[in-house]
Amino acid sequence: MLNHTTMLLELKEVNIGFGEGAKRIDVLSNINLAVKEGESIAIVGFTGSGKTTLIKLMAGLLMPDAGQVLFKDQPVTGPGRERGIVFQNYSLLPWLTVLRNVMLAVDEVYPAWPKKERLAHAQRYIEMVNLRHAVSKRPAELSGGMRQRVSLARTLAMNPEVLLMDEPLGALDAITRSSLQQEIIKIRNASKTTTLLITNDVDEAILMADRVIPLNPGPNATLGPSFRVDIDRRADRTSLNSNPAFIRLRNEVIEYLLDKRSEVGTRNTGKFMLPNLSPVLPQSVFGSTRSKAA
């Protein structure tokens, strides 16, 4: 309990589900996670396993049905500026320019600053994500990668204590994706912000985080064991593919996830029930309407 205070973000026996009664689906159950200050964690899991739900719990956009989400030992009661979140689908306001989108956040977080200072602050972060040439463009004029950069700049400009990223690169093509990965790593190394990344890409998880945690397939998804990443990240990305430590770690994580999925698969086989339907032929439909009309 002594090192309890060093935890920045903590999830304790968190359960959450959606729907009522027979339709209820328990998405996450018994989630335990402790994030230390300065740590970089990646949670990797299959599509639909509840990853977004998990990060929304941390952001305070969802409340757990049971258990606790703690930030600096205080229960999370809603969204907060200290927990910045980057959404998968960018969530930029389409009627605002790049600068205005970032300014919306800066104005809210630093209302006391003079206007000039707020503008300079926003511009600094736009430059950090290499979008100076696009400050006055609207999201519809930007590519997916550029949009996600804006979203990243908006979140970083709030100077959050923890950066939550929900599959931030999921919708991008491979080349854009790898260049943005490098940029995020660079920005993170400079700022040392605590980071929690959610992804479905094991390579990305290993590349970007110090600790990789698989999310077991749902329903009732739980977190798997942590895999510590001990790889020299200064090595460039192309040589990483032949790095034996990288390959071993990747195989371990993938094997773990596949094992878990096949377990769920066997668990579920008995559950499928085909609806009791018999085919309706066009003839019988017309026949019945005709007889009704008669």
Binding site: P79, I85, F87, S91
Partner: peptide, 12 residues
């Protein structure tokens, strides 16, 4: 709902 989430995260 994405826009609403932005408003919530910014605590507007």
């Amino acid at each position: 709902p994405d826009y609403i989430n932005v408003a919530r995260v910014l605590q507007l």
